[in-house]
């Protein structure tokens, strides 16, 4: 369900861009961070086979995130306003690299990159949420995208509990980062459920 929610979020994002011929309201910085997240995490495509499903999803996430960047940077460039997308990504990249160096399962390059990608994913939404706060409102379709994207990691949580008891396996890095990631959406979810799903416009209190 988490993976399908993630997949749905990307389909909704592409649908929003195509139908409105615009990337208004979408943070280029957040989208660029996702490209970095997927490239650093899915490097193991080259040596670690899990399943056709797993490989297909990895390829889709890499390809779609690069494609969204292309759409924002070239095809719909005039519709993107950098002056409201001002979050400093250096404040995310530095700490995530340090977290990756401290918390990893083996001190080697690919494992550090994997851990870095987990931490970076947890906070990659911040430029987008920062932008949303600056503008104070959003199109309904953009909020559906964010809701599906936020629900995705939250839906992993029951799976982690299941695996803790069922398979006696726990991934503390993914769990802690996943809880942080989900936590960052709580404010958004509150407004989404109380306004957008009640048929009102997404507007933040002044």
């Amino acid at each position: 369900a988490g993976d399908i929610s993630h997949l749905a979020s990307i389909v909704i994002l592409l649908h929003k861009i195509y139908t409105s011929h615009s990337c208004r309201g979408i943070s280029f910085k957040t989208q660029a961070l996702y490209v970095l997240v997927f490239l650093t995490r899915y490097l193991d495509l080259f040596w670690h086979w899990v399943s056709l499903y797993n490989t297909a999803m990895k390829v889709f996430f890499i390809a779609s995130s690069v494609y969204v960047l292309y759409l924002m940077k070239y095809k719909y460039r005039p519709t993107h306003d950098p002056s409201i997308d001002t979050f400093k990504v250096e404040y995310l990249l530095g700490p995530c690299l340090i977290l990756g160096l401290i918390f990893n399962y083996e001190f080697k390059f690919t494992e550090i990159l994997w851990s870095f990608s987990i931490w970076l994913e947890a906070v990659a939404i911040l430029p987008q949420l920062f932008m949303l706060q600056r503008t104070g409102e959003a199109e309904a379709i953009t909020t559906h995208y964010l809701a599906a994207l936020g629900a995705y990691r939250a839906l992993y949580i029951p799976n982690w509990i299941w695996r803790y008891f069922g398979d006696n396996v726990v991934d503390p890095i993914a769990v802690v980062a996943g809880l942080v990631q989900t936590g960052l959406y709580l404010d958004f979810f509150y407004v989404y459920f109380t306004k957008v799903l009640q048929g009102q416009k997404f507007e933040l209190p002044a």
Partner: peptide
């Protein structure tokens, strides 16, 4: 419980 990275997840 074994602490390990769940590399079969996305």
């Amino acid at each position: 419980n074994e602490h390990t990275s769940t590399k079969d997840e996305l």
